[in-house]
């Protein structure tokens, strides 16, 4: 795990690293992980039989018991959703003039969850003003970190995964804010970046592991690196992905399945 404060140049540039130092892509590990996990999940989930699949997402592997996380607060979720939209706009070179207005317009067009729509509608004028100020501050941190994303880079945003396991008994759901690189490259080049508007918590390792694991199962290729950036603190934590770490992430998934 490599923690740093916001670097002078784009964090994406740092995360992509030196092309010549990238290892060859690993297309062997995913099949083994999947086979092991499928067998274990089938053993866990066979009794009692469920009619609908068990859906496991990042929040399931990062929140244990009654641990409180400020991202769960409605205002935090709203802020996170709006910053998520700004990431998408920045990635296509949109010049952000008014962060809150831009984020709000994009968010409204992007079929937001009814819960968050209701939460926003319930905010009074002061609440909306506070949210706008909050979003502007986080947007400034985001823009400093991402800088200008070159149009030639293979950048994808809000990358969704819905990976069925054990014949569909369990489904892994995930959304990664930003993915750079392609799983088709001969060398390992895919970098996953999660952006949080909260300080980075103790569960970051599990979260990053889950992102890497789901991406690996979805593409059958081990990603190069996975990172989390906090717009609240400017902290960036990155980690190179290896087989051992993916096995730990698989164990996290199994733990959730056992508890369910």
């Amino acid at each position: 795990m490599t923690p740093t404060t916001t670097p002078a140049r784009s964090i994406l540039e740092d995360l992509r690293g030196d092309r010549s130092e990238r290892p060859p892509r690993d297309i062997e590990t995913a099949a083994g992980l999947r086979a092991t996990l499928d067998a274990e999940l089938l053993a866990i989930r066979s009794v009692p039989a469920r009619t609908s699949p068990l859906v496991i997402s990042a929040s399931d592997v990062t929140h244990h018991g009654d641990a409180v996380d400020i991202t769960h607060a409605t205002s935090g979720r709203l802020r996170g959703a709006l910053i998520g939209q700004l990431i998408r706009l920045v990635a296509v070179g949109h010049e952000i003039i008014d962060p809150f207005d831009d984020a709000l317009r994009a968010w409204r067009l992007d079929s937001p969850s009814p819960t968050l729509i209701a939460a926003y509608a319930d905010l009074d004028a002061n609440g909306r003003a506070r949210l706008a100020t909050d979003v502007a501050a986080h947007a400034a941190s985001l823009r400093r970190a991402l800088a200008d994303v070159p149009s030639a880079w293979a950048v994808r945003t809000a990358v969704r995964a819905r990976v069925p396991l054990a014949g569909g008994v369990v489904v892994l759901h995930d959304v990664v804010d930003l993915v750079v690189g392609s799983y088709c490259d001969a060398s390992s080049s895919t970098v996953l970046l999660d952006v949080t508007t909260s300080p980075i918590g103790r569960s970051a390792t599990s979260l990053l592991g889950f992102h890497a694991f789901v991406h690996c199962l979805r593409t059958s290729v081990v990603p190069l690196r996975v990172a989390i950036f906090s717009t609240a603190t400017g902290e960036l934590i990155s980690r190179d992905v290896d087989e051992t770490w993916l096995e730990l992430a698989a164990n996290d998934v199994l733990d959730v399945a056992r508890r369910a």
């Binding site: 998408r88 706009l89 949109h94 994009a106 293979a154 950048v155 392609s182």
Partner: peptide, 22 residues
Amino acid sequence: RHPAELALVQASAVEWARILAE
């Protein structure tokens, strides 16, 4: 559409195009 909304439409289409490219 507002410019920010157009940028979101562009981001969504770029996402699709990258899938085709891959």
